[in-house]
Write a protein that binds this DNA or RNA. Structure first.
Lengths: 246, 246
DNA sequence: CGCCATCTTGATGCTATTCAAAAAATGTGG
DNA sequence: CCACATTTTTTGAATAGCATCAAGATGGCG
């Protein structure tokens, strides 16, 4: 765990997807006084555990994470994958206990926003308060969309939707929409989609046979973005999460 | 639609499950100045529609609601059932657009909390601000729990979990935990659980055969609360939504 | 190079869906 | 209040989709 004392949102590559997005330069300056540290985690390391008391929010500056809830019987469910600019920790905001844990999928870095100071600042900076509320409701909305998928769509639709989702999030961040490397394992994908690893493997194969994608391990090349989007169905909703956070 | 000008949280039967829960008498007095009207809806009437601009939160004072998201292809998914004391509208908090609609399942009444005034007051009353944050993260947590169920549990487990959930929410409100009338149709139950109506019907029948419950249309009597809870598995989590909102 | 974890592939079975129809409950007008 | 129409719920039979079980292949890594 590496700690860097100074964080400059204004220089950060992902600031336009992150908390500062809607803030004035002045406000960003104030926010920089709150963002305390930059922490580096390697694949498999956790940012917080289930049951941990909430201390503050984490903004992902690089890498990716999975958020996981665990049932009393030991079952686990990945509730979301998170990418640079996105915020982790809302499930326990303000004096609550995390009911999920967040684990790095690859080497990743995060900024820490201690609750007390964030609260303090958001009371003084309405745009920040607003932005926090926006992120909260965006989280609830994206959760609603996901529930729709889990309740109503087939295995095929779900995998297509995930690929389109990841593609659009990468592309928003300036990376290729059609070629990327998955940071999560097949097991993670299966868990997230409520499927088995075998089903995911077979579906990937099928997509490849149907010339929708090209696959080499975790390297994905989307060949037929339109075809895949049609399978996904709800493809437009994916842009909402980030777009709506403005 | 009936409108009553004055709302007194202090007299309200469900205030201890609602926003005022953690507030001092003084703070409740201030909140009463914000709660503008009491609106009555009949079964099938909607509180807000998908796409409506957010105007404020609704606190349910009696009856029950379903919240529904709609896919571009017309599919719909009920994301939650809501009971007296619970708050509707968080999906669009602060200048966003509802991505779901809320529909009364029976004759119900709600209090309206206009955004501007709620904001204003929550800036002055830290306990209210805190309570709002708590409700937000409780919503996210309960969503996480629900995802776990949708992703990992069988049809049988899901129905048992729903019955236990409803039972515990009724019992918290002073009603019987073992005998109640479902306000939602079989179709709603099936939609919520990501199943078909036929499957739900068959499961209800099976539960009856196994002497877990007694059913007469929408009247449910839980005979073996322990057995049903064991099927539900995650039964303890149901208390969290309300309990954690303190 | 060889071990271990991850991923793929095949055969089989079960769960829940789909299609179809009847039964029960609810609503409606005379 | 009853006969009829409509909606909701139940039940049955057949099917499909995904899971489970069981090997086997591949790639990463010491």
């Amino acid at each position: 765990m590496t700690v860097t004392s100074y964080v400059r949102c204004s220089n950060c590559a992902v600031s336009k997807f992150c908390l500062p997005h809607t803030l004035s330069n002045d406000d960003i300056g104030q926010l920089e006084g709150v963002v305390q540290q930059k922490r580096v985690l390697h694949a498999g390391e956790t940012l917080y555990h289930t049951g941990d008391h909430f201390e503050g929010l984490f903004a992902i500056s690089s890498g990716s994470f999975k958020s996981v809830v665990i049932a009393t019987n030991g079952d686990s469910q990945i509730t979301e994958f998170s990418f640079p600019g996105e915020i982790l920790g809302f499930d326990a905001y303000h004096g609550k206990t995390h009911n999920s844990f967040a684990e790095a999928l690859e080497t990743s870095s995060v900024c820490f926003l201690p609750q007390a100071q964030l609260d303090n600042l958001s009371q003084k900076v309405p745009a920040l308060q607003q932005q926090l509320y926006n992120l909260f409701s965006a989280e609830i909305q994206s959760n609603n969309e996901f529930l729709l998928m889990m309740g109503k769509r087939s295995a095929e639709d779900r995998l297509a939707a995930l690929l389109i989702n990841i593609s659009s999030r990468y592309s928003q961040r300036g990376y290729s929409a059609t070629h990327f490397r998955l940071s999560m394992s097949r097991t993670d994908i299966a868990n997230y989609l409520g499927l088995t690893i075998e089903t995911v493997s077979r579906l990937i194969r099928r997509f490849q046979k149907e010339s929708l994608i090209e696959v080499a391990q975790r390297d994905i090349t989307i060949i037929d973005l339109v075809g895949l989007s049609e399978l996904a169905g709800t493809h437009c909703s994916y842009d909402q999460k980030v777009a709506s956070a403005e």
